[in-house]
Design a protein around this nucleic acid. Structure first.
Lengths: 94, 94
DNA sequence: TCATCTTGTTGCATGTATGCAATAAGATGA
DNA sequence: TCATCTTATTGCATACATGCAACAAGATGA
């Protein structure tokens, strides 16, 4: 995808922070997958947004990360966690 | 099912408070279904526990009821809301 | 009584979440 | 260099979420 190509997400897409949370905890997909009893490839599908998890899996991930569902999954695009925690840091790169 | 038949929920069942929340707000299934853009029969399926909603639908219901996902859906059986709000009221009917 | 509303149920169709196997490719470290 | 780890991708199979149509049955109110 080129620099200024525009890509519109479908209105029913669900965004998630799985990759970020996994990176923070320095886990491989295999380790995270084991922790929530799914196939490691499924973590890849979720991180890439290929499809959404079932509610059951979302609740298991929420429990594993010890975070409310809404902090991991959202129908709106997430702002970077850093920005969420310190709004003053917002960068305008335009 | 008879009085003392034992029914074990499958370990992966998800419980929900949709029927209670809908009753509180005095909505028909049709009205709730319209509010979250699904078929009214699907509300029936969810209330009866015939199947779980997708994460997308769970988030829409959560938004509609203005409640966190965890208060509507759980991998554990819910205690009655009344008991949750006033634990001292717990009844032992044995 | 009759019409309407609400709910339960059955049956069929479609799309999607998930598993799993196989392969490729980049990173890392011996 | 070679082996190993991690990730991406493709293809196939299965289970389940959802829609929709049809019908039955209880409640309610004219």
């Amino acid at each position: 995808m080129q620099q200024d190509d525009v890509y519109l997400f479908p209105e029913d897409a669900i965004f998630n922070r799985i990759a970020v949370l996994r990176a923070e905890r320095r886990l491989t997909r295999q380790e995270l997958a084991d922790a929530v009893s799914i196939n490691y490839q499924t973590i890849g599908y979720l991180e890439r947004g290929d499809y959404n998890p079932s509610l059951d899996l979302a609740l298991r991930l929420s429990k594993f990360f010890q975070l409310p569902v809404e902090l991991i999954f959202s129908r709106e695009q997430f702002k970077p966690l850093s920005e969420t925690l310190n709004p003053a840091s917002t960068q305008r790169n335009k």
